[in-house]
Design a protein around this nucleic acid. Sequence first.
DNA 1: CTGTTAGCGCGTTCAG
DNA 2: CTGAACGCGCTAACAG
Lengths: 355, 355
Amino acid sequence: MRRRDQPSARPAVGRSGHVTIHQVADAAGVSIATVSRVMRQTETVRADLAERVRGEAAKLGYQPNAAAQGLATGVTRMVGVVVPNLANPYFYDIIKAMNAEASVDGYRMLIADANEDPAEELELSRSLQRQVDALVLVSPRMSVDTLRELENQARPVVLVNKATIGVGLSSVSVDNHSAMLELAGHLAILGHTHAAYLAGPEQSWQQQERWRAIAQATAFGLRVTPIPAGASIEAGYAALDAALELKPTAIMCFNDLVAFGALSRLTELGVDVPGEMSLTGFDDIAFARFARPPLTTAVSPQRDLGRLAWRLVVQVLAGERPAQQPLLPIPMVVRGSTAPPADRRTAESLPVGGG
Amino acid sequence: MRRRDQPSARPAVGRSGHVTIHQVADAAGVSIATVSRVMRQTETVRADLAERVRGEAAKLGYQPNAAAQGLATGVTRMVGVVVPNLANPYFYDIIKAMNAEASVDGYRMLIADANEDPAEELELSRSLQRQVDALVLVSPRMSVDTLRELENQARPVVLVNKATIGVGLSSVSVDNHSAMLELAGHLAILGHTHAAYLAGPEQSWQQQERWRAIAQATAFGLRVTPIPAGASIEAGYAALDAALELKPTAIMCFNDLVAFGALSRLTELGVDVPGEMSLTGFDDIAFARFARPPLTTAVSPQRDLGRLAWRLVVQVLAGERPAQQPLLPIPMVVRGSTAPPADRRTAESLPVGGG
DNA sequence: CTGTTAGCGCGTTCAG
DNA sequence: CTGAACGCGCTAACAG
């Protein structure tokens, strides 16, 4: 079948069913270039023409096709976001804050779930990189070498919660080390001398930093034994019994989720918190404040993280090379889940599990 | 500046910094059509040629530009997902499950957060619709009229948890009504005659369905008074005191988050659950099982919802018009947060659930 | 089986 | 200030 020859024999809508720039141009009696100029408000167009174009565009419900714009300009207005686990509330707070900022700048988020698998993380990052303007890796589990590979790709990468030296990527992170040290110090001051630590995922930078701090706590008299757990409620619940066998007077947890699971099991076993066992979390997710007893934890500023991450993206996109961000401080908040160990408090009344 | 005439005078990489189909074609000594064919494995290409192309593609690290593919085919391989609030864990499992299925089919998720605002929901849906192949609205708060508007757009829309009649959109939802009726029945059988209900967001279909069920509970002797609350832990915590003034023997909650907040406040006030007050949630998020006491609630199958939602998307994309889905059943799970009211138990010592 | 070419919808020189 | 024409990277006829 031969194409028709009539100059303006254009279908009312394009193949995809959307109104295109051509229909608007025809309706307004101008060229597509003028429509483009009006829409992007980048160049000056005679007032009445502009008004007419705007009118027709509104009437037809025209909105530019993002893919075509992306092709033409090389800018997709999308950021890729890779998280280790789409079921963890901690990441959602970051995502939510980042998304709020990004959408103000007209950006969309393409979200990918790596399922705690470093290999999948890499694969997702690679394929996402050519679909977006920038990539944000939240708490990536991948190795530094792998990160370095991503660094050399065309699209910029921003890191959240992985402050590694030797990699030139911009990043925002929280000061896990100081915060965990502070929590350990808090327990030491209360009089605890032996605690268990329900550890997080091994590849996690946060886990490494937190454990590094805990290991140093021996310096002020707190000996801490690690127990592999994970990053979820279930992990904390499951690992608690093993921790109890160590007969500690306190249990420190990788994060609030783990602490919540541990608390659940402790309550179930009839172990009084903080009477017989002190408990600390990390992150201060919403549940921490409402747990009973409320959790002593470290207030990781997820929303600031999200906001700052977006700011970094903007800077990197603008061609700037942001200075290495300082680590965000994490204030400790002491709530009801920690207290002096039983023997310290009740040395003269009721010695429970005395050492 | 005039274009050069040398046939293969092509830059090593395109403007965006990526390798394009042209470089691969040049390197392999074939046309771009052939490269396209071997990449899409849609047509048959001579084995040795295909091998050569694959080799060069791999060597150059070529991957097709998604925007260009989208433009050419009209298929973006992206779904838009709009949720009322990215901070609500209820949505996590749905999103995660849906994403898992979608990525198997080579699809990406573009996530948008409507912040519980129906107007924003509409705006996001509209703009997202021309950027994706299909749109999934999770628990939308928008009105039926608004939905009908979306229905007439070019891109298909799938609804999760909004089974409205009169709208031709495909949807998967859970049977909120039966489940809440079952919870109310459970309380009635235990002997409760007056309960408070911490209600969810008004525009929420789930809230409407759940309340409809609760209102019917008078039929079996349970009178329930609603108290406006919301969908978050904070809302439940804040609304509890007002509920207590009604002197009920049980408190039903819009969802587990609200119940968790209420439980938190109850524990704080020294009210024994379930001894002095029974409490029910809804959804069975992970926290419900690990709360102390664990929550009696309704097990909303988020993962099935996510999976089924994706299946619907696939069908709709294939041009099918899926039959209206039946409502997914929500089994009730009785855990430690509900018991007979105090007066009933002390009256006849302890025959539980007496007729 | 392979190459040529015409769009997909839009941004952007470059003449007028 | 405006319009014609080219190209972004790719797919899909259509010839060969």
